[in-house]
Design a protein around this nucleic acid. Structure first.
Lengths: 205, 205
DNA sequence: CGGGGCATGAGACGCACGAAGGAACAGGCG
DNA sequence: CGCCTGTTCCTTCGTGCGTCTCATGCCCCG
């Protein structure tokens, strides 16, 4: 029974929403297409009209989730003029609070980590992640290179090393938080740590 | 056909070795029990005599891999007397080079990351990881608390915050390296970053 | 010489994915 | 406006693979 265009779009959105909830609640492997279909009010076959396979559903969700944060990162090099490191600090804090607000986001973030880098398999997932990582790296290097040129980077740190270290620090904080969110207030503790580290990076010494 | 005791132990070891190779080569999900059984020279049923399920095989491998590093971490609080932060630095470097030496270790490490925290499911895996994390945290806090008491910790860092930040930094470095090992010499770059950060943490200022 | 550690093989069950078919929408033609 | 045809959207059933179970039996060990 073919639906009208809006109905079709609605169907797709329903599938996505159902998948989001179920993935967040039970994890990726533990949710079957059957369950998604039932929650969305369609049959399994319908899902395959919109998505090539189960992983493609996750891909779509991940891209939706990552887009706003990627935008923030991309916009980072816009107004470096007065305080590059300060902008970085507030962006990171913004990301922490945004991700902390909603528990489902945390679950999806966990799943994203889970998907990355499963040795040889899942090449597409890895490529998506690798590209995001490269983007972030590039932006961070730009920020620290700018700070370096303007004498605002601690001279014992090269821009590349600073970028790598900062990225690793934030990644690690997110990873530990996603593992046990209740025991770790990433907004407060993470923000504090990032602040202290950036103070050190920016120290004129 | 019942084997002798050594033969049985050998069978178990063969299964473990075969699983290790295949997991490292193709990833956890992509290797079937059939493949493991064939590589080990037994049938699928035999595997179930030794391991409750597929995840239990991975568990055994992970524990084997983690044991030596956990020993290093546990031994950290033994000789704090002269240079606690220096001991931490050399331990971290040791871990980096050890993990870098062998490509299969990297793959297994990736899989370990992959398994942690799949929302509600896989509670055992998570527990194992959480316990290891707690152990590391405790040891790090001890080290930094000792340094703090002896005036060797930068006063703007509290021991807890320093421990958390350091752990996050190392975790993040390992994560990025495991994602693209060829583009990132963790022994050199990672070692340098850790050194610089520890210098800052230990600065008397 | 029995009991239980060690292993086989078949098969039950669930799941991702494919493919064929059918219902009705869109929009061009008369 | 009404028809009609290609396309879009979705159902239904089938297939193959993967994990895990179970009944059965071998033969070491005490």
């Amino acid at each position: 029974m073919r639906r009208t265009k809006e109905q079709a779009a609605r169907t797709r959105a329903d599938i996505l929403a159902a998948a989001y909830s179920l993935f967040a609640e039970k994890g990726f492997e533990q949710t079957s297409l059957e369950a998604i279909a039932e929650a969305a009010g369609v049959t399994r076959g319908a899902i395959y009209w919109y998505f090539a396979n189960k992983a493609a559903i996750l891909d779509a969700i991940l891209e939706m989730e990552c887009a706003p944060i990627d935008d923030l990162v991309t916009g980072l090099t816009g107004n470096l003029v007065d305080d590059p490191v300060g902008a970085l600090s507030s962006l990171t804090r913004e990301m922490f609070t945004r991700v902390q607000q909603d528990d489902r986001k945390r679950c999806i973030y966990s799943i994203m980590r889970q998907m990355t880098c499963a040795a040889q398999d899942a090449p597409r997932q890895t490529a998506l992640q690798v590209n995001r990582t490269r983007l972030v790296h590039k932006q961070l290097e730009k920020v620290f290179a700018y700070a370096h040129r303007h004498g605002r980077l601690n001279p014992i740190w090269s821009p590349e090393t600073a970028a790598m270290a900062y990225h690793a620090l934030v990644t690690g904080l997110l990873e530990e938080w996603s593992r046990e969110a209740e025991a770790f207030d990433i907004g407060a503790r993470g923000g504090e740590i990032v602040e202290l580290f950036l103070d050190h990076l920016a120290a004129v010494s």
